[in-house]
């Protein structure tokens, strides 16, 4: 698992050479593509004696859908706050759209940024429409844009209702509508799907796809990997305030090189036959279980294992193959 121990390597080395066969062409194109819209260099942030962010380097390209993955307290939200210029880094620098986030001129960059904070808190005494109108005014967006945004997040029937009466999911959707005010070029979404039901999550990602098609750059964070792994172009795994790995899902999976697991369903009498058939192959483990044999091997031995099992013919009742999930990759990297 030496390839997982990326944190000890310097940032440049994090962009490990990628196996061309596995990396989708799109991913390599973005990695080498246009000027990044977000550039984070050597950013450190201390809170007293606690180092929340510990030397982060990131570059997000324009139009990219970028995921930040990490446990609670990994430093994601602190990173968001620094990228938004709400918090100054202790050292290092952050440029958004070519402007330092600490610069006076960053105010104008904010007009093109949408932000959905983690567990968004809105004003209970305002209605949904009034909430949007308040933020629209601050962003210099005409008030008539608000109704359309409510519709976009499925709250068109609740525009006159006070936020006080809203469920967590409804607040989250209203917060998302707020983030989309003024057609921002860049969206920061901190745990955007927390509190949403499955239908609302589906709708959220559909909207995200539309935004992406319009060329909006999106940075979203999550600790639920299964949800975002098929949806982001690239992601960074954050743990203990550092970027532990960065790349497309395929690249990360590749780099982690976690074992593939086979479940070979055979009658107990044929366990030995399976063991013999695989004996000469570089498998990691073969274990007899209740009604099946569990086999683990590296990715490069996968085809050989399948071929060997196929030669056993009708002895085998069934084979299921379990690829390492991003969850496994993530835990492998961040633990």
């Amino acid at each position: 698992m030496e390839s997982i121990l990326l944190p000890t390597l310097e940032p440049a080395a994090v962009r490990v050479p990628v196996a061309p066969a596995v990396a989708p062409p799109a991913a390599t194109a973005t990695a080498a593509g246009a000027d990044p819209i977000i550039r984070v260099r050597g950013v450190v942030r201390d809170f007293g004696a606690v180092r929340a962010v510990d030397g982060v380097d990131l570059a997000v390209k324009s139009g990219e859908l970028f995921g930040l993955i990490g446990h609670n307290g990994a430093g994601k939200s602190t990173l968001f706050r620094m990228m938004l210029g709400l918090l100054a880094p202790s050292s290092g620098e952050i440029e958004i759209d070519g402007c330092r986030s600490s610069a006076r001129a960053f105010r104008d960059v904010r007009r093109r940024i949408g932000f959905l904070p983690e567990n968004v808190v809105l004003y209970d005494n305002l209605s949904a429409l009034e909430t949007l109108q308040f933020f629209a005014r601050l962003k210099g967006v005409p008030a008539h844009a608000c109704a359309a945004l409510l519709e976009r997040v499925g709250l068109e029937a609740c525009g006159r209702r006070r936020v006080r009466e809203f469920s967590k999911g409804m607040r989250q959707r209203l917060g998302f509508a707020q983030a989309m005010l003024g057609d921002p070029r860049l969206l920061f979404l901190d745990e955007p799907t927390s509190g949403l039901d499955p239908e609302a999550i589906r709708r959220f990602y559909a909207t995200l796809r539309e935004l992406r098609a319009d060329g909006v750059t999106v940075v979203l964070s999550s600790h639920i990997l299964a949800e975002i792994q098929e949806r982001v172009d690239r992601l960074a795994v954050i743990a203990r305030g550092r970027v532990q790995a960065i790349g497309s899902v395929a690249e990360l999976r590749d780099r982690a090189d976690l074992p593939i697991r086979f479940e070979v369903r055979v009658a107990a009498a044929h366990f030995a036959a399976v063991r013999d058939a695989l004996g000469h192959l570089p498998v990691l483990s073969i274990e007899a279980r209740d009604g099946h044999v569990a086999v683990q091997c590296r990715k490069d031995a996968k085809l050989a294992v399948i071929a060997a099992l196929a030669r056993l013919g009708e002895l085998i009742q069934d084979i299921s193959v379990r690829e390492p999930s991003l969850e496994d990759v993530f835990f492998g990297i961040s633990e």
């Binding site: 104008d108 007009r111 601050l138």
Partner: peptide, 8 residues
């Protein structure tokens, strides 16, 4: 945070 993320 949300307030301060506005152009203000």
């Amino acid at each position: 945070d949300l307030l301060l993320s506005m152009p203000i």
